[in-house]
Design a protein around this nucleic acid. Structure first.
Length: 799
DNA sequence: TGATGCTGCGTTTTT
DNA sequence: CGCAGCATCA
């Protein structure tokens, strides 16, 4: 994944924005810090930060708002512990969620205390540390220390096998759904026997828990774990082996946790067990940035910290060093609408800067055009594109921007797309390597046994499975034995023999040659690279390139097993030459990043807040969406620009949309409502600059929109779903050529007479045309100018 | 065994 | 609308 971005308040000296003065550094305090301790690394910390660094004994919760220097606190705290000799590097447990965060922390600690971090073996992600502990004690939980870590793909394939073995219709009860349930159980620290009866019953007529059990058993036979197990098995280990637990409790004199608001129950339990030893647990987080509730994060963990860890000290970091005044005030005012929060008041000493802008566009295309234009202007003024980001709620929004940027010839990069390791060719190659390192890795074997095609089909594989089951042997072994018998037809038999011999040969070469060389040989001799070379599809070349990249990335490791361990936990490869390009990503992937200019399109009801969140999570969902909006705003250093469109194409059809309620929740004093320059002429009267809010929100269109929104919101009605999106009362909003500004075309709720074929109509976006097909409320229209389009009948008028 | 057609679905994503 | 995943057919 490309990762040219800076986080938090990392080095600011290379900031590119020529118009911005350097951000203020907290001054004065440094002197005090020096006087107190004489430690250079404490210089420049503000009093709260200093307190967070120096409060070493007992549980500490650092509530660190966006841009308040939390990473700095965390790294300085480590440096402080080391510098004051309170612990050796190997006695500090420091956990993060992502590899990116772990890497950053490692780098920054290293920069502060020199190379001592080489010796910080317990700095890493929850999963990598869980894996490390588990490998040391694997036998105690029924594994061997070289267990394989399955990813989601393997997990699903395994569950499919289990479902079919249990004779359950994969159609009615999809494996991915079961995988999701098992994940959520594991997230909550639930072993199969602890799963609440109701939940277990909700899958396959009550067989959910049984399937979970079967899955766990199968994992043990395969000597494999999934991601959830890395923690769950730790919990099981600590539960049944108090000695082992005590050993780690004694070891970890200091524990640090980043992004505590994202921890799930299993992680919480894990931390709590380990912290019971020394009780020196420091959790850093921000409840206002909790945006992963849907994947098991428990905001409660942070909300209840003081209760769970008695005597905990809570320190608030509220001085923001990132954003200008208007941006910070806007974000704070918005998030203040949430009820479930600990409450912080962010402040800054930075200048007010530009107001946050809110721009209404006619439709999502105009929105993209407008943003494209503004970016070009910024570029002309000398701003770096890499300091500009477009943050969207859902990835389908990205497409319009990509289209636009391609026509403008504006370099952009999409962050967080399909990831390197998820590509089929990478997973195939890894499966080959896994088969070499772990001959018993059945999942890997199955993946590549007939790839490239070797004439080994369903029936051959079935024979292998039968033998394997009967002799309790891995598939590889079954293949070796059976290829020496008359059991199989000559052709598959020959292929299998060749394959097993090849694997034995490669395994033999493992010691003799560098693993990168072996990797190349394997991909070559197996016919795998040939397979892609012979394929003349458009992306074959890219896949071959990816394979080379994979081999190249192996150079950083000592051997094949080491590489595989890394890849199963990290699975991302540094790439992206870091050229100057606009960053396009989702709000979720923007967490932890910052940019000079942030564009936030799509602030519409149903999209942000997302309808689905509202339907499924009610008020909690709304609050999480609001936090998402807050995260978006707080990514901006100097310019935050919000947009909403009145029409958006969703699933190929144009829907009328209403501005997000979050726009109503912004403080007038810090926001400026502007008008899109595009040609569709939002009537100026509605977007008066002088009195933006009164005039904007006073129009009939707005009021109806709001009325309808309230109606929908009050009930959290599921039935409305995306239909709430298609606002039939928005007709006064249209502003295409030939309409009268601001004129409201009244409409009753009575169904209108159906359109008939051949009828002439007018559409606010596409102009005049003729109906060629009617399908309920959907019309196919041959437009005079725009060609054939499918539209909704409420957007067209008879002429 | 491979290609083609149909159905269903459509938010966010790490490890 | 566009795609992914599956089923069916040649």
């Amino acid at each position: 994944m490309a990762e040219p971005l800076k986080h938090d308040r990392s080095d600011r000296s290379d900031r590119s924005d020529p118009f911005d003065p350097p951000a203020p550094r907290p001054g004065g305090i440094a002197a005090r810090a020096r006087a107190t301790t004489g430690n250079a690394y404490l210089e420049g910390l503000n009093p709260e930060q200093l307190q967070a660094v120096e409060t070493l004994d007992g549980p500490v919760l650092v509530l660190a708002g966006a841009g308040t220097g939390k990473t700095r606190v965390l790294t300085t705290r480590v440096a402080h512990i080391l510098a004051t000799g309170r612990a050796f590097p190997s006695q500090i447990l420091s956990v993060t969620f992502t590899n990116r965060a772990a890497r950053e922390m490692k780098d920054r600690v290293a920069a502060m205390v020199g190379e001592a971090v080489e010796g910080m073996p317990w700095l890493g992600t929850f999963h990598s540390i869980g894996a490390k502990i588990l490998r040391r004690h694997a036998e105690l939980v029924g594994l061997k220390s070289n267990f394989t870590i399955l990813d989601t793909d393997d997990q699903i394939r395994l569950l499919k096998q289990i479902l079919s073995a249990a004779d359950i219709d994969d159609k009615r009860w999809p494996a991915r759904v079961l995988a999701g349930m098992i994940d959520s159980w594991k997230n909550r620290g639930l072993l199969p026997d602890k799963v609440p009866a109701g939940e277990a019953a909700s899958f396959a007529d009550g067989r959910g828990a049984g399937l979970y059990t079967a899955y766990q058993e199968r994992l043990k036979t395969l000597n494999a774990v999934d991601f959830g197990d890395l923690l769950l098995e730790n919990l099981r280990l600590f539960g049944k082996e108090p000695d082992v637990l005590a050993q780690y409790q004694a070891r970890f004199r200091y524990m640090l946790v980043d992004e505590y608001q994202d921890t799930n129950v299993a992680q919480y339990l894990w931390l709590r067990l380990l912290a019971q030893g020394q009780r020196n647990l420091c959790c850093v987080g921000d409840d206002d940035q909790s945006i992963y509730g849907w994947r098991g994060a428990e905001v409660d963990n942070i909300l209840r910290f003081e209760h769970d860890f008695r005597g905990a000290k809570v320190i608030r970091l509220e001085r923001n060093y990132r954003s200008t005044g208007h941006i910070l005030a806007t974000a704070s005012h918005l998030i203040a609408h949430n009820e479930s929060r600990l409450g912080k008041t962010l402040r800054t000493e930075a200048e007010q800067g530009d107001k946050v802008s809110v721009t209404g566009a006619w439709d999502s295309e105009e929105e993209a055009r407008e943003i494209g234009d503004e970016i070009e202007t910024l570029r002309r003024q000398g701003h770096k594109l890499s300091q500009i980001a477009i943050l969207v709620r859902a990835s389908f929004q990205m497409r319009e921007f990509e289209d636009r940027f391609v026509t403008l010839n504006l370099p952009y990069r999409v962050i967080g797309g399909p990831r390197f390791y998820e590509r089929a060719e990478i997973r195939d190659a890894l499966a080959y390597f896994r088969c070499i390192v772990s001959p018993a890795d059945d999942l890997a074997f199955e993946r590549i046994v007939n790839l490239p095609k070797r004439g080994l089909g369903e029936s051959t594989l079935q024979t292998l499975h039968d033998y394997a089951r009967a002799h309790n042997a891995p598939l590889m072994e079954a293949a070796r034995v059976l290829s020496a018998t008359e059991e199989l037809k000559p052709k598959p038999r020959g292929s299998l023999r060749d394959l097993t011999l090849a694997f034995e040969r490669w395994r033999g070469q493992m010691e003799a040659m560098p693993h990168t060389e072996l990797a190349e040989i394997v991909l070559e001799e197996s016919g795998y690279t040939d397979m892609w070379q012979n394929e003349r599809s458009a992306d074959a070349a890219g896949r071959l390139e990816n394979l080379k990249e994979l081999v190249r990335s192996m150079e950083a490791f000592d051997n094949l097993p080491g590489f595989l361990e890394h890849i199963s936990l990290v699975m991302d490869v540094e790439s992206g030459a870091g050229q100057d390009a606009v960053n396009v990503m989702t709000l979720h992937s923007a967490k932890g990043l910052e940019f000079d200019t942030v564009f936030l399109p799509g602030w519409e009801e149903g999209l942000l807040p997302h309808q689905r969140s509202l339907d499924e999570q009610g008020r909690a969902g709304l609050e999480e969406e609001r936090r998402l909006a807050h995260v978006g705003l707080t990514r901006a250093r100097h310019r935050a620009k919000l947009y909403f469109a009145s029409h958006r194409r969703i699933h190929g059809m144009w829907n009328s949309t209403v501005a997000s309620r979050f726009i109503d929740e912004l403080p007038e004093a810090n926001v400026e409502v502007t008008e899109a320059k595009g040609g569709w002429g939002q009537p100026a009267s509605r977007f008066e600059r002088a009195e933006p809010f009164s005039s904007t929100y006073g129009t009939p269109g707005w009021q109806r929109g709001r009325a309808q929104r309230d109606e929908n919101g009050a009930k959290n009605s599921t039935k409305n779903g995306v239909k709430g999106f298609a606002d039939k009362h928005q007709r006064g909003f249209k502003g295409g050529p030939g309409t009268i500004d601001g004129k409201v075309v009244g409409r009753t709720s009575a169904p209108r007479a159906a359109f008939v074929l051949g009828e002439r109509i007018f559409h606010t976006k596409f102009g005049y045309g003729e109906v060629t097909e009617v399908d309920g409320n959907k019309l196919t229209v041959q437009f005079d100018k725009a060609g054939e389009k499918r539209v909704i009948d409420t957007f067209v008028d008879r002429v």
